[in-house]
Design a protein around this nucleic acid. Structure first.
Lengths: 208, 208
DNA sequence: AGTTGTGAACTTATTCACAGCC
DNA sequence: GGCTGTGAATAAGTTCACAACT
C-alpha cells in the first residue's frame, strides 16, 4: 500500500464489516473470501478489497481473510481497541434504549457515565452506572471521556454539547434534531430519525 | 430543467432543507436566498441551488426562494404531501421514543398502527393508537399502510419485515442490527446506532 | 445590484481487469 | 485454481463561473 487519502465512505463501511465478522466468528468460520463476505453484506467484492487495502494487506491470496484477525485490525483502525468511554446525556426513552443496546460492547465501547435533569432519575442506577445531575456535567473533566451521546430535546442540545466539549469530549453522537455548532476539532454525527423516515417515502412506488 | 438522474445524496438532503424551512417559516421569513439558507444548514449555496434545480425552477432571481412554497414543493417531491401511514412494530424503549418524537407530523407523516408481543402492552393505548398483537400483523393488509418501522430485537426483524411486506408495506425503517432480505420493490433504510458511534471514534485525535 | 439555474471543470468514489501470490 | 491487492477506467457528486432573469 502507498499513501492514500481514505474515503469517508470507506470509514462508514468499516463498522458494518465488523458486525458481519462478528457473525462469522460466532459461526466458527476461520477465514472468509471477499466474495463470500460481499454476499453476506450485499456489497461488491472489489469494494471490500479496496476498502481494506487502504490500510494494508490483510488477506491471504488463494485463501481470503482471517476473520478474527481482520476484526481486530478494523477495530484498531477505528480506534476501538482502546475501548473509548462515552457519556450519555438524557435518560429518556431513547437514552434508555441506547443503554440497553447490545452491540456497543461488541464493538469495544463503553458508556460509563449518565446524566439527566429529572430529580427522580438522579441517583438511580442503570446497569451499574449511577445517574448524575446534568448540572454537574462539568465534573466529567478529568474522567477521560472521549465521546458524548446527546439524547435530550432539541432546545437543550447546544448547551449540553458546549459543556461536553468543555469537559474534553471530542466526538458527539447527536440525536437531537438540531445542527450543533462545535469547534473544528470536534466531530459530530447527527442521527435524525424523522429525516430518515421522510426520505424513505421518496422511494415508494405510489408517488403522485 | 432537462432530464437528469437525481443523485441519492440530493434526496438525503431534502428532509434537512424541510427542517430548516420550518424554522424560517416559524420565524416569519417569507423568502430566503441560497446563501442565507446555506449558512443556516452549514452547506454550500451552489449545492442547494443545484439540488433544487433537479426538480424545476423554484426560486426567483434577485429574490430567492419563497419559504412556504418551497416547503410544500419539497414535501411533494418526497411524497409526503399524501401523509403516508406508518406501522410501528416493537414498543420497547426505542419504539416508545419514536412515538414521542416531535417532527414526524411536521414532515407530514403519521404512525397509525402499533404492534407488540408483550401481553401487558397489547390493548394499551399510546397517543390515541391501540397496541395490537404482533401475531395479528397480517390484519394490516387493506389498511393502506405504506411504511413500516421495525424496533424489535435483531433475531425477530426478518420475520417482521416479511410480514410487513406481505401486508403491502414497501418502505421499511429498520433499527435492528440485521441486514434484511427484501424483494426488489421494497426500500429499506437501516439505522444502526452502534455502528455510527463506532465510526465516530475514528475521527478522534487520540488514535494510537 | 442581487440572485437564480446550469453547463463545464473538478473532485471523489466505485468498479473493472488482471498481475502476482498462495 | 482461487483469491488478493491495485492501477486504470468509469461513474457519481460537488463546486465553479457566469449568463439570464427580476
Amino acid at each position: 500500500m502507498r499513501y492514500h487519502k481514505i474515503p469517508d465512505e470507506t470509514i462508514k463501511r468499516l463498522p458494518r464489516y465488523m458486525r458481519a465478522l462478528l457473525l462469522l466468528i460466532k459461526e466458527g468460520r476461520e477465514t472468509v473470501s471477499s466474495g463470500k463476505f460481499a454476499e453476506l453484506l450485499r456489497a461488491n467484492p472489489p469494494q471490500i478489497r479496496k476498502d481494506l487495502s487502504y490500510f494494508g494487506a490483510f488477506g491471504t491470496p488463494g485463501v481470503g481473510y482471517d476473520t478474527k484477525r481482520l476484526f481486530g485490525q478494523i477495530q484498531a483502525i477505528l480506534g476501538l481497541d482502546s475501548t473509548p468511554k462515552a457519556a450519555l446525556v438524557g435518560l429518556g426513552n431513547l437514552g434508555t434504549a441506547l443503554l440497553k443496546y447490545p452491540g456497543f460492547k461488541a464493538y469495544g465501547m463503553h458508556i460509563t457515565a449518565i446524566f439527566d435533569s429529572n430529580p427522580e432519575k438522579i441517583g438511580e442506577t442503570v446497569g451499574d452506572i449511577k445517574v448524575e445531575n446534568v448540572l454537574e456535567l462539568s465534573t466529567l473533566k478529568g474522567r477521560n471521556m472521549s465521546l458524548g451521546i446527546i439524547t435530550v430535546p432539541a432546545p437543550a442540545a447546544q448547551e449540553i454539547a458546549d459543556q461536553l466539549i468543555a469537559a474534553g469530549v471530542n466526538g458527539i453522537l447527536n440525536f437531537a434534531p438540531y445542527y450543533l455548532k462545535v469547534p473544528e476539532h470536534v466531530k459530530v454525527i447527527t442521527i435524525d430519525i424523522a429525516m430518515e423516515l421522510a426520505r424513505l417515502t421518496y422511494y415508494l412506488p405510489t408517488k403522485t
